[in-house]
Design a protein around this nucleic acid. Structure first.
Lengths: 346, 346
DNA sequence: TATTAGCACTCAACGGCATAGAGTGCTAAG
DNA sequence: CTTAGCACTCTATGCCGTTGAGTGCTAATA
């Protein structure tokens, strides 16, 4: 891979990303005004094809990048278009417009990212994993109906309404609320498990029979908070990609679980997957750019941008990097703020 | 419109719904073994075309129903395929699997309906309009953070986290919670308005300055509950319709507001709209079957099934009718149940 | 008068065929 | 190692001609 071959590979991919058409030797030298002839370029392209970086749709067509080609391009050739300070301040403003709870930060960020890049964004969020229970509330909401509410240190509120088989007295409810808050406040929400639940039930003492159904519902609610949530934004952007069939897209969107698996493999920094390389992400000629975000030193989730393989990586990757960093910073700030002073009642 | 012409129109539409291909006079007499010749059928078809019930894609093609044709078919010709008792009991079971709150009933029903009919279902839900406030809770959730919670008589729980500019004391909070519940419990949620809010703020007396921001947030939350929500289910079913372009579908899904307007026009019983007949519902060759549901005597919302114009109306309409009735019944039951005995604290 | 057999006509769909053009690989010369 | 030149390949495009389903019209029939 001498310098000229690199230049040619880069030019082919740049051009292909721009036009979506196979790139031939002639159009290449015209556009690049290289001091060599098209024949030379052709010879080099044969080599690049042997190396697996390019391929031909058919004999008499130009060259198209392979996944390997894209990877080489991303790692060695492209010059990322760094964000301007103007863009950065715009993003900063947009990201801070909804910074009260961790959930809302991520949700908002994903929207902004999909909007700015005109791509489809997918997030898997594990935020609850390192949040603590801040408060549990039980509120009568009708005949034998009770609303349960859990608030976590990252600002997540989750509620649920449940129907019991019998009525509870005011006294029972009061006891339960005090008991459950004494027991669970400050507990990490992912540390709860059936065994622990059993112990807590026993600790209810004489109230066990009447209150353990409610306890069980609380547990079920924590389980729900615990689930990794996965969300799409900007699906329209995928559907309006004319190179994709609606059916493929629908298929993709229906396989959230596989995508979650993929996203969870995202290592620090940017990683990229191509469709067909991987069974769980199978729209042909598509790719996903992934990056995780964290809270403090712990992993908080990841987001991935999905689009055709010929994404403008040079432009999009800096975006993803900046978002990953910003979201991490904002989330870490929120945890600090909320832990800071949590006792306004004192 | 003599009897034979009706039979022919019906046969054309039945056949077209089944195959999606224009129907010709020959295939018609074969399939229908009518005691007349194809020439006679042709003569009749010319008439049906003049009446506006049929049209030809081009001169040498068979006939295709027009919107007018479908309407005539639906109103006069088709024989609805009534649901069997088996189907009814299945639906009943499915509908009752989540009957705790009004919201969950509707959400569940829409899912089941989309699933059974393999179509896209859209709901506009006005449930909150006739629900009363059952309880308002304010829960400290971090530094200057407060979780607000409103529970309504139909089981809707809506929460929101808000950040205030200053800390509140335990005493202030306690006062607010008692005050706001005394003031708002039993109030219809759509009867709140800015003027009323003003009065309540004044009634806060010496607490007004410190607590009116919180009051304002409560009001904003009621406004949010009040909004007509509109939801899609089974979008995949639309996208996999090969007669629709992905772009059209995306367009449609992005125009929730127009659809809400359309849905709100749904009168009692079934109504049907065709695409292109109406600007706000513009996928060509599509149609929507709508029906409202109620709670007691008040309108609760509507749902609409969206699909190609050649829906199997005879099959789908009875479904929609049955759902409309069932949901109405279940919702009315919930309101009764929840109003029944609302004072377990006594 | 309503029906029908017969027939000429229309038009989309399909396949075959020639052409144009972009691009290639190879070869031989610089 | 580079390049001019050339034969070759293959898609895309457009132009028939054919096929077949379906039509409308007419004249004969019940």
């Amino acid at each position: 891979m001498d310098e000229r071959k690199c230049k040619i590979l880069q030019a082919v991919i740049d051009e292909y990303i721009k036009t979506g058409e196979p790139v031939g030797s002639n159009s290449l030298i015209k556009q690049l005004n290289m001091p060599v002839s098209s024949a030379t370029v052709r010879n080099d392209m044969v080599l690049l094809e042997k190396l697996g970086y390019l391929e031909q749709p058919h004999t008499s067509a130009g060259r198209v990048p392979t996944h390997l080609g894209y990877r080489y391009y991303i790692n060695n050739l492209m010059t990322p278009k760094q964000l301007t300070t103007k863009e950065k301040t715009l993003i900063d403003t947009l990201l801070l417009q909804n910074d009260i709870t961790a959930d809302s930060v991520v949700e908002n960020a994903v929207n902004v990212l999909a909007d700015l890049t005109k791509m489809t964004v997918i997030t898997s969020s594990k935020i609850p994993i390192f949040s603590m229970i801040t408060r549990v509330e039980v509120i009568p909401a009708g005949r034998r109906l009770y609303a349960l509410l859990i608030i976590t240190s990252t600002g997540t509120i989750k509620n649920k309404i449940c129907r019991l088989e019998f009525d509870l007295t005011y006294e029972q409810l009061n006891f339960f609320e005090k008991f459950i808050n004494d027991t669970l406040t400050g507990v990490n929400i992912d540390s709860l498990n059936p065994a622990m639940l059993q112990n807590i039930a026993v600790a209810l003492g004489s109230y066990m029979i009447s209150l353990s159904p409610l306890l069980h519902e609380v547990y079920k609610l924590t389980e729900e908070i615990n689930k990794t949530t996965i969300n799409f934004t900007g699906e329209q952007n995928l559907l309006s990609q004319k190179s994709f069939h609606a059916n493929e897209v629908v298929d993709l969107l229906n396989h959230k679980n596989e995508l979650e698996g993929l996203l969870s493999t995202a290592l620090d920094g940017i990683s990229i997957v191509f469709g067909n390389e991987n069974d769980s992400f199978a729209i042909s000629n598509s790719s996903m750019i992934m990056s995780p975000y964290s809270i403090g030193s712990q992993k908080g989730g990841s987001f991935g941008l999905i689009g055709p393989a010929r994404i403008d990586y040079a432009k999009v990757i800096p975006y993803v990097e900046y978002f990953s960093k910003s979201v991490t910073k904002i989330l870490s700030g929120i945890v600090l703020k909320n832990d800071d002073d949590n006792d306004c009642k004192s």
